[in-house]
Write a protein that binds this DNA or RNA. Structure first.
Length: 480
RNA sequence: CGGGGCGUAGCGCAGCCUGGUAGCGCACCUGCCUUGGGCGCAGGGGGUCGGGCGUUCAAAUCGCCCCGCCCCGACCA
């Protein structure tokens, strides 16, 4: 097993994250107060970019956006036994309103299966009403014991899709279709490779028949669940009496799905790409893709440089940083911290030579390019950065994925080697989807992340805990 | 709820042990100067030292009590 290059983002990753990436208002994506997020301009613009990409795909697959109430009667939650059991500990409950004790308390939505189930029951009567494909962009509250900016906050923003279908087959297709949409956005927009897989029964969503997820690896080797898609079976259909008459004239409960991604994606992206200098954003989500910094000394230079800079900035759609009273150096650092993929420099020297200097945020490499054709060069460089970021992350994932053939070997691989490297690896081993196996892995402070949809190697083998035959290896890792 | 730590200027901190009228860096304001990777110099504004009580001639500093925050563990997108 080769020593991985990710130790610099090891145990002390939280400190790095806090001090470097989120340092005060230097990078200004967000801050946290009382476990809740304040997302500032730079961070929110990233979220908007993700929303655009996701929403376009939801629409393309026939979904409609709707909005449902924030406050849900507590009794709704109680209709599905597993659901209420899973969410009870983290509910925020409203018991007083309008100065009076409420007859029935409301919960602030931790997720909307129940209230949407309530409305589905009113709206669905016939097979002709199906499938019903709904998405909601909203905030939710989950009272977690421990919060971490972007990764786990009391309140977070997300999208939750909720669909109802006439058959289980069709519902399952939807579950996998949306999982594919998430993987597509993660890999092709966020430049973050993911593993698609099925959660074990112990790890599934409370109230689901089965849960699928995409799992990503952060720079320190820890896993992060980046999106989930649930097959709800008829559990909520039965709980909320969502019945329809099928083509044969018989009554049946609908088959439902739900799926979501959250503002955690922003954190995932930061921890996948950023470095000690601050944010590194993939061009496709970067709020500002290119900035041009003009450089001049004297007044006569100033007007000539600014005129040329303004023209070039307009041509390539870059932001012109013409702030007075800031040195060029200060401006370079400013944009570097904020993760702007490309920063261009234009000074008297370039004016004379007809060139412009172009610097990549990801590699730090500078190139001198002719002003002629820069409008085509910048997009090409942005594409290249996007591709290189993905490739680097993929390589990191591959290099830190190892195979184990016994439980001892798993333990050995996951054992913290040093303070920096807290066992941050993906371990592939044959394991059965059995609570005993999940429990055994938890002893190493790790979890079975998923049973990959695509067999990554070798095929069948014997479970390293129960000895039973299983058809493929699962992903085991420590996680955020 | 356990185990640690911290509250002093907008932010980050020193001062506390050994009480004596509050300081540094960054940021901010003014002027000059500079600008190809955080310019420099000079001047300036800004603080009920988390709160209360006590000890003392005198408390940021010592004692007691409260309050708040952060980190680590248990819960999780």
């Amino acid at each position: 097993m080769a020593e991985s290059p990710i130790t610099a983002r090891g145990k002390d990753f939280a400190t790095w994250y806090q001090d470097v990436v989120l340092a005060g208002d230097m990078a200004e994506p967000a801050e946290i107060v009382k476990g809740c997020m304040v997302i500032r301009a730079n961070g929110y613009a990233v979220w908007e970019a993700l929303q655009r990409e996701l929403d376009a795909r939801f629409k393309a697959t026939g979904h409609q956006n709707m909005y449902f109430p924030l406050l849900i009667p507590k009794s709704f939650l109680e209709k599905e036994a597993e659901h209420v059991e899973g969410f009870s500990p983290e509910l925020a409950v409203v018991t007083i309103a309008g100065g009076k004790e409420l007859e029935e308390p409301y919960v602030i939505r931790p997720t909307s299966e129940t209230i949407i189930g309530h409305f589905f029951a009113k709206w669905i009567h016939s097979w002709r009403d199906l499938p019903l494909l709904v998405n909601q962009w909203a905030n939710v509250i989950r009272w977690e014991l421990r919060t971490r900016l972007f990764l786990r906050t009391t309140e977070f923003l997300w999208q939750e899709g909720h669909t109802a279908h006439a058959t289980h087959e069709e519902a399952l297709e939807e579950v996998l279709r949306m999982l594919d949409v998430y993987a597509d956005v993660a890999e092709n927009v966020m430049a973050m490779p993911v593993i698609k897989g099925l959660k074990t029964q112990s790890e599934k969503f409370a109230g689901a028949v089965s849960t699928y997820s995409i799992e990503a690896m952060m720079q320190n080797g820890l896993a992060l669940q980046a999106g989930t898609s649930h097959d709800l079976g008829q559990n909520f259909g039965k709980a909320f009496d969502v019945k329809f008459q099928n083509k044969e004239g018989q009554l049946d409960y609908v088959w439902q799905t739900s799926w979501g991604v959250t503002t955690r994606l922003i954190g995932a992206m930061i921890m996948t790409h950023s470095d000690d200098k601050g944010l590194v954003l993939p061009p496709k989500v970067a709020p500002t893709k290119a900035v041009l910094v003009p450089i001049y000394r004297k007044d006569e230079e100033r007007s000539a440089v600014l005129e040329a800079a303004s023209k070039i900035a307009t041509d390539i759609g870059a932001k012109l940083d013409d702030r007075e009273g800031q040195s060029p150096g200060a401006k370079f650092y400013h944009w570097e911290r904020r993760g702007v993929p490309v920063v261009l420099e234009l000074g008297p020297r370039d004016l004379a030579s007809g060139n412009v200097v172009l610097k990549r945020r990801d590699t730090g490499v500078k190139e001198v390019a002719p002003q002629q054709g820069i409008a085509a060069r910048v997009p090409a460089v942005l594409d290249r950065i996007q591709a290189d970021l993905f490739a680097a992350a993929k390589q990191r994932l591959d290099e830190n994925t190892v195979y184990a053939n016994s439980i001892e070997e798993v333990e050995d691989i996951l054992r913290p080697v040093s303070a920096e490297k807290g066992g941050g690896r993906f371990v592939m081993a044959h394991m059965k989807d059995d609570a005993r196996c999940d429990a055994r892995i938890k002893e190493f402070k790790a979890t079975i992340r998923c049973i990959p949809l695509v067999d990554h190697c070798e095929g069948p083998g014997k479970c390293i805990v129960t000895g039973e035959s299983v058809d493929r290896r699962v992903v085991i890792a420590k996680a955020y």
